[in-house]
Every structure is written in C-alpha cells, then in structure tokens.
Computed example of a mutant assay.
Amino acid sequence: MRALRSARLGADFTRLWAASAVSNLGDGITLAAGPLLVASLTGEPLLVAGAAFAQQLPWLLVAPLSGVYVDRLDRRRLIIVVNVLRGLAVAGLAVAIAASAVSIPLIYAVFFLLGVGETLADTAFGALIPATVAADRLTIANSRLATTTVLGNQILSKPLGGWLFASAAALPFAVDAITFLAGAALIAAMRVRPPRGTATGRVREDVRAGLRWLWRHRLLRTLAVTMGVANVAFCAAFAVFALLARERLGLAAAGYGFLLAAFGVGGLVGGFLSARVQRAVPARVLLRGGLVVEVVTHAVLAATTEPLLAGAVLAVFGAHGVNWGIIVATLLQRSVPDGLRGRVGSVYSLVQVGGAAAGSLLGGLVGQVAGVTATFWAASAAMAAITVVSWRPLAAA
C-alpha cells in the first residue's frame, strides 16, 4: 500500500527522491570519513574540527547569492551541473589520497567547494519539489525525503563511512563521487521542465527581495527566527554532549554511540509517521508542542544521570526535529511564489546555519566557564523564552 502511495507521487518525484537518497548517503559517508582523514594527518583538535567548518562556511558567505542564481537559472540543470562538479572535486581528493599527495589545505579546499555546491544544489532541490508533485501531496513527499535523509545521512552512512575508511582511506571519497554522479543522472532523467525564477535584476536587489518577502511573512519570519535561536541552543548544548555523556551519564564511547543511535531512530520514526500525524493534528499544535519538547529535552539532559532516560528523550527530540522540518519545508513550498523560492529558501537556511555556527562556538565557551551541565540549562532557558515569544504567532500555522 505504501508503494502505491509513492507511485502516485509521480515518476519525476521518484527520480528526485532516489537522487536525494543516493546523495545523502554519499554526503554522510564523507562527513564520517572527513574527520578521520584529517585526524590521520594531524592530532590537533582545531584542525580536525576545521574540516567540518570549511564545509559549513559557504552557507554563511554565499547562501543568499546562491538563492539568487537558483531563481535565475534552470533549477534542474543547475543541480545536474553542481553534482557533476562536486563529484569531480571529491574524486580528485580520492586520487590525491591514493597517491599519498593529500594535505590539510587540500582537504579544506575540497570541503569548501562541496559546501558552495551544497548551497546551490540544496536550495535548488527544495525549490524544485513543488514542480514534481501536487500541492496537496507536498507533506507526503517531504516526509518521504526526510525519512530517507535520516536513514542514509545519519544512520547508515556513519558506520559505512568508518568501515570504508578503515578498508582504504580513499574509498569513502570515491564512493561519494559515484553518488554525486548517480544523483546527477537521476535528475537528468526527470521530464519536468520547471520555469525559471524571477531574479533578473542586480544581485543586491534580488537578495533584498528575498529578505523582504521573508520578513513580511509573519509566520515564516517567526519560524526562521525561532529555528535560528533553537539552533544556537541545540548546537551550544550538543557541542559538549560527548562530555555530558561521559561525566554525567557515565558512558564510554559505545554508550555515547547508543545515544546518537536513539536520536537517529527517533528521527526515522518521526519522518515515517509525519504525514499521518499532520493529517490528525493541526500544524500549530505540532509546532508549539515541538518547542515544548526542546525545552524539556535540554532540561532533562541537564538534570538526569540515567542513560536510558536520556536516550528516550533524544529519540522524542529526533522525531520532533524531523517532523518540524517537514512542516516548515511544506509551508515554504506552499507559501513562497515559485520565482522567489530560491532566495527565500536560502535566507531561511542562512538563519539556521548561522544559529548552528554561533551555538557551536558559544557552547564551548559556556562549558569551559560554567561547566557542561550549565550549557544544557542555558539552552533550556533560551528555548523557554523563544517559546513564549513565538507562541501566539505560531497560531497562524
């Protein structure tokens, strides 16, 4: 029965879905293998963390600009070209590793290029979805995409990336290159020809148009600011989560892995059930309830010393996070005019990634000064404040 429902979403969406699944698996493999590669060259924690930051940095630097070009160009062709170029870049890294010619600057450069490509491809991908399915099927489509993203990017790819790297250091990056090319081939097989966006003026004016549209839409503005603050709180807390697991919960590396697995499994269940839940429960209730879940999650993790309770709370948090993302993606796709989807989507992503980057830095500082537990209490207090502020505007969902 589920297969029949998926079929009714159409062949173009099926290809888009498959491309997303393949690409997310490859991305997760590289995310797992990248730190291992840098760690094989240096023991400096800052340099190891720098690889991930190099891939996040383009979202802070060029996301709004990427949104402009998503609204200027054929989105389908843009994804194809970007995926091919990313595949070539990561294939070059694999060759350098195999030839023992890899260096940390080269890794940073490749990861930065992957991040630039991500700002273009991911923004174009989100803007392309409404061209493949009817508006009343967007929730189901987004739930399918979210489920495979969690499964591929968070659950399957991490152990696979580590195993491939242990087999041969170049292997995970070669596999990622293949997934980029496979994703490009699947997008090329789509028959849909989406219209180009309306960004045709000066780049600065086009960026401002996206900013203005998002700021004037009260609900989406509230969601953007709310998630920006939520990402500050979440990433601040989870920047020191490994220390909390060891010092408060008494867990070794395997136990820490169990907590991460609980988070991923919760996300998988949340994505699988999201369409059904959203049919039964109003969006405003789910969004408000999600904020309460975030407040409670941080507070429980700060207070408990029971690993099983922590795992259960993280599973609920994972389910909420995926469900929230599906609701927001659907709202953006339904509310934003097609010609503005790239710019508005990229600005929304910039707020989220900016919050995550700020939170990662802030969490280390708070943990250093006040202790690990204080970071989680501060995150809970911040989420309580944003819940109060955003409660009434979320009624419009």
Rank of each mutant, 00 (worst) to 15 (best):
V207L: 11
G183A: 15
R248V: 12
R218N: 04
F241W: 11
R208Q: 14
I187T: 12
R204Y: 10
R204S: 15
R191I: 05
P172E: 09
S167G: 08
V203G: 05
F165C: 10
R208A: 15
A230M: 05
V207R: 02
R208Y: 10
G250T: 02
L220E: 07
A169E: 13
A182V: 15
T198E: 15
F238Q: 07
F238G: 03
P194S: 09
F173A: 11
A254P: 00
F241V: 07
W213F: 14
R218H: 12
L186A: 15
I187Q: 09
L171E: 07
A184P: 06
A170F: 13
V203D: 00
L223W: 03
R248Y: 13
R196H: 10
V207N: 02
L171A: 14
V225I: 15
M190N: 12
R218S: 14
W215M: 09
L181G: 15
R204C: 00
A199N: 03
V203E: 00
A209N: 02
E205T: 12
N231V: 11
A237Y: 00
L251I: 13
V192D: 05
R216I: 01
R216D: 12
R204G: 05
L186G: 07
G250E: 05
T200Q: 13
T222D: 06
N231D: 13
A239Q: 04
G210W: 03
A184S: 10
A184V: 06
W213S: 09
R191K: 11
R196I: 07
V240F: 01
D206V: 09
S167C: 04
F238E: 11
R212Q: 14
T198G: 14
A224Q: 03
A166F: 00
L243D: 09
L186I: 07
A239V: 04
H217M: 12
D176M: 05
A166H: 04
L223P: 01
